[in-house]
Write a protein that binds this DNA or RNA. Structure first.
Length: 299
DNA sequence: AGACCACATTTGTGCTCATG
DNA sequence: CATGAGCACAAATGTGGTCT
């Protein structure tokens, strides 16, 4: 894991301020940006660090995660000092409770604790899913929250015709970013929280990244407002929306003439360099026959 | 039939790079 | 100089299976 410690972040921003440059918003994105820099000198100047968390391959005598980290540390890799070998769930809970507060004193930003099975042979027994191991789980510290005003709700139409309501919010600072928009997912989510334009809403960021509306501050609601009326027609092409019974999302059925659907599909297929897979060619043919694309350059 | 699982898709912000 | 692509991240939803 590559890290920009708070100390590096502060020093870099101090230098930027002195030069009248725009400041980095948060260490996380600054670190991510640094990794894309082409200048090795500039990367060095950013003073990143990195922690080793996992050990690939086998070394005789190293049969637990704990021993692997000790070994890596002896070899000179940076390893987080803040780990504990727990014998039972009570000890795990104590460790989590401790870091809920203590993380404020760490030199880097954290959002939680990873709990792992120590024994490699037990790890092998438990195995992996496609994405993540079955022998490890993450405990996430409660996300930071903010309150702001819901200015309006707009509707986006995706490449599949799915309609997604998105909240336009009074910009508010939340864990290092300015939040202006957040997905409301579907009509049920809006009805569940009884979200109305003009409301003061609670927002938080899942995993410190994705903003999410979690509720309404009812006492501050303006007088004489009505429950939110979900749209019945596509905001892009005016077609009557469809919603299957029991399904969450509304769909615009106008596959071939609704602009964002066409644009979305082209972008999707192009980005996957898969115009020639099933559907790709048919799509282009349809676009030509309907005069939606007059010139190949439109693609 | 319903529970459960894996996996794709969609959503927003800040960053850097390439393009025009 | 402005614009857009692509990336990191999480979680809900949707889809297509398998298991009980």
């Amino acid at each position: 894991e590559i890290i920009m410690p708070f100390s590096s972040f502060r020093e870099l921003n101090a230098a930027k301020e002195k030069n009248g440059e725009t400041l980095f918003a948060n260490p996380r994105n600054a670190a991510a940006g640094t990794l894309k820099l082409l200048s090795a000198d500039e990367v060095e100047r950013r003073a990143l660090d990195c922690y080793l968390y996992h050990f690939i391959g086998q070394v005789p005598g190293i049969d637990t995660h704990w021993k692997a980290l000790e070994m890596a540390s002896q070899w000179g890799f940076s390893v987080s000092d803040h780990r504990r070998l727990c014998q039972n769930t009570d000890q795990i809970m104590d460790f989590l409770d401790y870091w809920d507060q203590a993380r404020a004193d760490l030199p880097i930003a954290t959002d939680g604790v990873v709990i792992k099975v120590n024994s490699f042979s037990l790890q092998r027994t438990l195995g992996m899913t496609a994405k993540s191991p079955q022998w490890a789980t993450a405990y996430k510290i409660k996300a930071e929250q903010a309150v702001t005003r819901l200015l309006s709700v707009v509707f986006q139409v995706g490449r599949t015709g799915a309609v997604t309501p998105v909240a336009n919010l009074e910009p508010v600072l939340l864990s290092g970013t300015t939040v202006k928009r957040a997905s409301l997912h579907n009509a049920d989510q809006i009805a569940l929280h009884d979200i109305r334009p003009g409301d003061m809403v609670y927002i938080e960021k899942g995993g410190e990244i994705i903003p999410k509306v979690i509720g309404v501050d009812l006492p501050s609601r303006p007088q004489n407002t009505l429950p939110f009326q979900y749209i019945t027609h596509c905001p892009e092409c005016g077609t009557l929306l469809e919603r299957e019974p029991g399904e969450a999302k509304h769909f615009c059925p106008n596959r071939w003439e609704c602009p964002p659907q066409i644009k979305g599909r082209i972008e999707h297929f192009m980005s996957r360099k898969a115009m020639n897979i099933l559907g790709g060619e048919a799509l282009v043919e349809q676009l030509y026959s309907k005069n939606i694309i007059k010139d190949p350059a439109d693609l």
